[in-house]
Design a protein around this nucleic acid. Structure first.
Length: 350
DNA sequence: AATTCGGGGCA
DNA sequence: TGCCCAGAATT
């Protein structure tokens, strides 16, 4: 695409965005005089990593209501942020979120260049470019999954992913303007989300169709991807130990699966069933009639839930949480499922 | 360069 | 059921 064609492309895209931009809680609408708040842009971009807009909205409201500024978030206890993040997934993001907020406050505010943003925890190539572009008006090249899909189709890139990433980024760079770079980036993402969709692309409504090499040539086949290996199966055990009205929780190790999160005591999750998983206490354990099935990024888990009550014995030290308030304990989805199952099952029938 | 990180919605 | 989603950190 020539330089002049790129200019026409940018005008067509921005003109469409001015009319069809999605209204999002963290977004300053096109044409507004208001300046985007770097804190809100950053927070939304972290939440949006591999997470759909619809899921992020509720969490974004919750976080910005409770912690309206990066200073407030920096002062929050890490455990409170983990609990608020529960259910959103990829919990290393929550750990990096707090670390990043504290570094930002320590240095007196968000840096306004892509290079400096890139040094902060949890901010990678995409997020650094997005914040620099959207919050600070820098002409950074913003490449997410939407942009990759749009570029693959615009330029009919037949190389399968992830080998095509370099070419796709180069094409994105060739189209990134100095004028309104943030709106340009958001326009490409909105285009990918609402028009240039993974399946059933709406080419008839596309503002840049005249520039697209794939329009009319089954655009849905791009970008090409290799087949994924099936997820292996793993098995584990979790324990629902009550002492009267309370249930025993643990805090998982800071790193690794569900790192730093509150959880039910649980075994490791292994491909072969553990011969003897060690329960958190000696008790008369009952296995719940059905396990919890859960799918993680790279394996499927069958979680056996064992239950017991030891209200007749002294209560061991530990993190005991009210059973009736368990929904507010900040459990990730796997253990929230297990807790719901335990509460819905009459397991103490002996 | 590959692997490890969650969870939900939808064709 | 498989695929995808405003990816980053680790190995």
């Amino acid at each position: 695409m020539s330089t002049i064609e790129a200019s026409v492309f940018q005008c067509a895209l921005l003109g469409w965005y001015d009319v069809h931009a999605r209204a999002l809680p963290w977004r300053v609408p096109p044409g507004s005089q208001a300046r985007p708040d770097p804190y809100r842009i950053w927070l939304s971009e972290i939440m949006l990593q591999q997470t759909v807009v619809a899921t992020v909205k509720d969490y974004f409201y919750k976080f910005t209501t409770r912690w309206p500024t990066v200073e407030a978030l920096a002062q929050a206890p890490e455990e409170d942020v983990f609990a608020a993040w529960a259910g959103l997934g990829y919990y290393a993001r929550a750990r990096n979120l707090v670390a990043c907020a504290r570094q930002v406050v320590a240095r007196g505010g968000f840096p306004d260049t892509e290079e400096e943003l890139r040094t902060l925890p949890g901010i990678g190539p995409y997020t650094a470019a997005a914040v620099a572009s959207i919050a600070f008006g820098r002409p950074s090249v913003v490449v997410d999954g939407n942009v990759e899909r749009v570029m693959a189709r615009l330029f009919a890139v037949e190389t399968p992913m992830p080998d095509a990433k370099r070419d796709l980024a180069r094409h994105a760079a060739s189209l990134t303007p100095v004028h309104r770079p943030g709106d340009h980036a958001q326009a490409l993402m909105d285009l990918g989300a609402t028009i240039c969709r993974p399946t059933s692309a709406l080419c008839l409504a596309c503002p840049v169709r005249p520039f697209c090499k794939a329009a009319g040539h089954s655009p849905e086949r791009l970008p090409r991807k290799r087949k994924k290996a099936p997820k292996p199966e793993r098995v584990g055990t979790a324990w629902w130990l009550t002492h009267g009205p309370d249930v025993l929780l643990v805090t998982r190790p800071a790193k690794g699966l569900l790192g730093g999160m509150r959880a039910l005591p649980a075994s490791d999750f292994l491909t072969t069933p553990p011969s003897a998983a060690i329960p958190p206490a000696a008790a008369d354990w009952t296995q719940l009639p059905r396990p919890v099935s859960h799918i993680f990024t790279h394996f499927r888990l069958t979680l056996i839930v064992m239950a017991a009550d030891i209200s007749g014995s002294p209560r061991p030290d530990g993190l005991w949480h009210s059973v009736t308030d368990i929904e507010n304990a900040g459990l990730p989805t796997l253990f929230a499922k297990a807790a719901r199952l335990a509460m819905a099952t009459k397991w103490s029938t002996k």
